[in-house]
Amino acid sequence: MPKITVDRLVVGMCLAEPITNEHGLVLINEGIELTEALIEKIKNLRIESVKIKGDSKPEETKEEMILALEERFKYAISYPHMDTIKKIIKEHIERLYE
């Protein structure tokens, strides 16, 4: 889900997460399609960014990303902890495609 700044919202975008006030009360629910009036309302709330629905998967395919990752770690992989770090990042990348 891409997180975008409020000034970049356009009519027709869908909220991926509800917008709440500082106490956590829902002001605009998730899944709502944005209208001009709603965008105006969000701007007045003085919030920085919102999550909108949509495809935020990276441009490369998962296989390309993993291959590049293996390449990057070739040099240092035998050093302590590098295998752990690589594993965490690999899982992170895989999750981007779920």
Binding site: M65, A68, L69, E71, R72, F73, K74, Y75, A76, Y79, P80, H81, M82, I85, K86, I89, H92, I93
Partner: peptide, 19 residues
């Protein structure tokens, strides 16, 4: 190291240095 590992940007090489 994490940023290079993840592959954001470019800092002069394609190699993650050891921690």
């Amino acid at each position: 190291i994490l940023v290079r590992g993840r592959g954001f940007g470019f800092a002069g090489d394609r190699t993650v240095p050891p921690v």
